[in-house]
Structure formats: structure tokens, C-alpha cells
């Protein structure tokens, strides 16, 4: 019992032991997990373009 509880506390926030969720859009079919990763990449890309970079030395 104690082992099971420890496992449940340490379990991943997303249950990977069941079929994933999918988004269907016409002929496009993509898992929610992959869609989240693509969304994160777009967010990080936009942030990298817009956020100022700390000033440093040794540049010309």
C-alpha cells in the first residue's frame, strides 16, 4: 500500500499508460501532446525574437 501511494505521488502529471488525446481537423490528425510541444516552440521562438538580451562585453 505504501509503495502504491509513493508511486501515485511520483506519477507523471500526464498518465502515459492510456491512449493519448487527438485533435482531428479535416485530414489533419495530431496528438494533443505534439500540439502542445509545437505551441511551446512557437512561444519560445517569439520570446527569443522579442525579449531583450542582457548587455555583455567583447562585441564589436
Amino acid at each position: 500500500m505504501a509503495v502504491e501511494m509513493a508511486y501515485s505521488e511520483l506519477a507523471a502529471p500526464v498518465d502515459l499508460n492510456h491512449p493519448g488525446h487527438y485533435v482531428h481537423w479535416g485530414v489533419v490528425q495530431i496528438s494533443v501532446a505534439n500540439l502542445v510541444v509545437i505551441g511551446l516552440m512557437v512561444l519560445v521562438f517569439v520570446a527569443a525574437v522579442l525579449l531583450p538580451f542582457p548587455k555583455g562585453r567583447g562585441r564589436r
Binding site: F45, A47, A48, V49, L51, F53, K55, G56, G58, R59, R60
Partner: peptide
């Protein structure tokens, strides 16, 4: 190199 161009000071050059 000892130095890099000033335009490298952008997060997009980090990836």
C-alpha cells in the same frame, strides 16, 4: 575569436 559582432546580442543566436 576574441569578439563577436554586436548583433549577436539576441536570444535567437543562442539556440
Amino acid at each position: 575569436p576574441d569578439t563577436q559582432p554586436a548583433y549577436m546580442a539576441s536570444w535567437i543566436y543562442v539556440f
